[in-house]
Design a protein around this nucleic acid. Structure first.
Length: 425
RNA sequence: GGAGAGAUGGCAGAGUGGUUGAAUGCGGCGGUCUUGAAAACCGUUUAUCCUUUGGGAUACCGGGGUUCGAAUCCCUGUCUCUCCGCCA
């Protein structure tokens, strides 16, 4: 969430930021509640100071054997007043906090202002040497390939779970597993990350910490019986590793990478987007998470994108990088790059990764701080995360780009030692 | 699932109604001593909020209550540990 002091001091900036995200600005309500809160607080604290003083005196007087009944009676009234003011304070404070939890992060100043995906800015693209957009005029799409090679089964997935729960079969399952292991190893050995294998179910506090809750509850699965949420991304458990903790400055940046299955309800998103792998309820993802010093946040974001890109270069899959405009930024993000891979069958780019810095937005919610050794103060870290990458969309591009004219799949070179085979036919 | 125990500062661990924000030990930081280091000794070491910048308030797992006054008493929730049962 945003710092209430920052909102108090920069209301116009905050309003503009929120509106540029196409979100409803409720800054005036926040300021109103904040003002109320402080007014009540002052009165309550004055009364408490009095109570503390007199209560101590009562103790002393009693020890000295003196009668205190008059004072005690008077203090009873003060005490009642305190209760009254604290109740008011409580109401106002919880309203304020609730409201603050719904206020999105504001875009970083380097983010282009825009309304929708159309205003995103393509930063760069990378294509394998022999690649051309025209060469693949006649191609099978990933669904046809999956069916033909008996490596993907969407129908049976729908039978056992529902639509959007794909089943990987045979060499398809092996390929998926190889892809995950390859990506993990790559980040571990080449990019200096440490591996985490997180829980796939998390509690409400964790979901609030990274900002999925309270706003996006509709998009989450929820296990009512135990009060647990299946994670929509490993970002949630991994970022929350350090919730309510104080990190050593020397340990920063902390760079973690982890695999998880991801579960998303994708409420209300039916239609052509939903065929095959393009939008599913369960998919696999390797996620990178960083905890960094505030001044390094933007730099670390660039590195994060590069780390994700390296995977695609190694796999020789065409991709492009977009800087998201303000209107396309997610609730918690301050700045974000999407990586899109090319689908020859769809003849369009598919989002396979999203790399964001959240500034101190998540850190403030999750209370993740570090001791700044030069100022000796506790400060919030900045958190970043990026997919490195999501296998489902990546698999679409991989299968389609690596198909032969006969509809076989060549296994990318770097994956062959993980799969143990070099062709799927 | 059954029975019991517990939750206090970075850690360990006292404290069972009145200067206790919290003894003591360890750790950390600063200093004395030393050629240097260790040891020893001395000192220091929580955070958040409000503020008329003097100061004030809050917090001993969370929430509620009793009381003039709660780390301390009562209720409740959560979590952890031990034993038994079940089990990949």
């Amino acid at each position: 969430m945003l710092d209430i002091k920052f909102i108090r001091e920069n209301p116009e900036l905050v309003k503009k930021g929120i509106e540029s995200k196409n979100e409803n600005s409720r800054v005036d309500e926040v300021l109103q509640l904040d003002k109320q809160r402080r007014e009540i607080l002052v009165v309550s604290e004055e009364l408490k100071a009095k109570r503390n003083q007199v209560s101590q005196d009562v103790g002393k007087l009693k020890k000295a054997g003196q009668d205190t009944s008059a004072i005690v009676a008077e203090m009873k009234e003060v005490s009642d007043k305190i209760t009254e003011y604290d109740k008011k304070l409580n109401t106002v404070e919880s309203e304020l906090n609730e409201l603050l939890m719904y206020i999105p992060n504001i875009p970083h100043s380097s983010v282009p202002i825009g309304r929708s995906t159309e205003d995103n800015v393509e930063v760069r693209r990378w294509l394998p040497e022999e690649f051309s957009f025209e060469q693949n005029e006649k191609v099978y799409d990933h669904i046809e390939l999956g069916k033909k090679l008996r490596i993907l089964d969407f129908k049976r997935g729908a039978k056992i779970s529902g639509s959007g729960f794909p089943v990987y079969l045979g060499k398809g399952a092996t390929l998926e597993r190889a892809l995950i292991n390859f990506m993990l190893d790559y980040h571990l050995h080449n990019h200096g990350y440490s591996e985490v294998f997180p829980p796939f179910l998390v509690n409400r506090d964790s979901m609030k910490g990274t900002g999925q809750l309270p706003k996006m509850e509709e998009d989450l699965y929820f296990i009512d019986k135990d009060g647990l949420f299946p994670i929509p991304t490993a970002e949630v458990p991994i970022t929350n590793l350090y919730r309510n903790e104080i990190l050593n400055e020397n340990d920063l940046p902390i760079k973690l990478v982890g695999y998880s299955a991801c579960f998303r309800r994708e409420a209300g998103s039916y239609g052509k987007e939903s065929k095959g792998f393009l939008r599913v309820h369960q998919f696999n993802k390797v996620e990178m998470v960083k905890f960094v010093k505030p001044e390094n946040s933007l730099n670390e974001l660039e590195n994060l994108v590069n780390d994700a890109e390296d995977i695609l270069k190694a796999l020789q899959i065409p991709y492009r990088i977009l800087m998201l405009c303000s209107g396309d930024l997610s609730f918690a993000a301050a700045k974000c790059y999407d990586i899109e891979t090319w689908s020859p069958a769809e003849k369009r780019w598919l989002e396979a990764s999203s790399c964001s810095t959240f500034g101190d937005f998540q850190a403030r919610r999750a209370n993740i701080r570090y001791r700044n050794e030069s100022t000796k103060k506790l400060e919030f870290v900045h958190t970043l995360n990026g997919s490195g990458l999501a296998t489902s969309r990546l698999m679409v591009s991989l299968l389609e780009n690596y198909q032969t004219p006969e509809g076989k799949i060549i296994v990318p070179k770097v994956l062959q030692k993980y799969t143990g085979f070099n062709i799927i036919e």
